[in-house]
């Protein structure tokens, strides 16, 4: 079975973003970028499926400008076999990305597509579900555990839901989105980073895939959220309770 993994390049999770003064967006110039953490988990899971003999090929896909290649290299160094780079300078919305991925899936014919449940930049949490809909496939979102049946026809997915955990059996082929507890992604070793340089990254364009990526949403402005007023330190628990009762009025 071939496994396709979608990955996104985002501002590093440890960076506190700055909103541009003119309200046009957040500052991205000279900011550290990295693979979206949920995408790392997706790559790790795919590589483990290959190590377990369930996947015979792991193919990465990323859509975005030139530097998306760096993110693909990171995934290749983690153990993916090859990569596809959909090159575009346009800003991409989840629906457009889902359409691009559906077009790639039509060419590649994977049995399973793994994605992160959410990108930590736009926080949309949409692409995997949209892709499953466009392909008419089953979806297992927010996965914390996956297990393939012996005959490869069913994937059992444990999902992190608001009430706890839920388990569903998906008819293959399927789209799965990863949650935090699915695995702990490996660090690429130096030999693997060197080896990844020899792996192929094939460029494609939205035009070649026949997908209209014109944005649907108009971002009118991006603002900084209202800051919280500074607080105070108290010395004792008794003083805290007194403040909560008599000052804040919440007890």
């Amino acid at each position: 079975m071939k496994v396709l993994v979608a990955v996104k390049r985002v501002i590093d999770a440890n960076i506190k973003v700055r909103v541009r003064q003119d309200g046009s967006g957040v500052e991205t110039a000279n900011v550290k970028m990295a693979m979206n953490p949920f995408c790392e988990i997706a790559v790790e899971e795919a590589v483990r499926l290959a190590e377990d003999g369930i996947a015979d090929q792991v193919v990465l896909v990323s859509a975005g400008p030139g530097p998306a290649k760096e993110t693909l290299r990171t995934g290749l160094a983690m153990g993916a076999d090859r990569a596809i780079h959909i090159v575009t300078e346009e800003s991409l919305e989840p629906l457009a990305v889902a359409k691009l991925l559906a077009a790639v899936a039509a060419r590649e014919d994977p049995g399973l597509i793994l994605l992160g449940k959410q990108a930590i930049d736009d926080d949309c949490n949409q692409t995997g579900q949209m892709l499953a809909a466009l392909l008419g496939w089953s979806q297992g979102t927010f996965a914390s555990k996956i297990a393939m049946s012996d005959d490869g026809a069913t994937l059992t997915v444990t999902r992190e839901v608001d009430g706890g955990l839920e388990t569903v059996a998906l008819t293959m082929p399927a789209v799965v989105t990863t949650d935090l507890r699915l695995n702990e992604p490996r660090y690429a070793t130096l030999p693997n980073i060197m080896g990844a340089k020899k792996k192929s990254i094939d460029p494609l364009t939205p035009e070649e895939l026949g997908v209209d990526i014109t944005p649907r949403l108009e971002v009118l402005r991006v603002d900084e959220p209202p800051a919280r007023a500074g607080g105070i330190k108290v010395e004792t628990a008794a003083e805290l309770v007194d403040k909560l009762v008599n000052e804040a009025g919440v007890l």
Binding site: I11, K16, V17, V19, V26, I120, D121, D122, D123, R216, L217, E218, V219, L220, R221, V222, D223, E224, P225
Partner: peptide
């Protein structure tokens, strides 16, 4: 967006 560190006003 960005973990609530920015608020986007969007029109659909």
């Amino acid at each position: 967006i960005y973990a609530g560190n920015a608020l986007a006003t969007v029109r659909s």
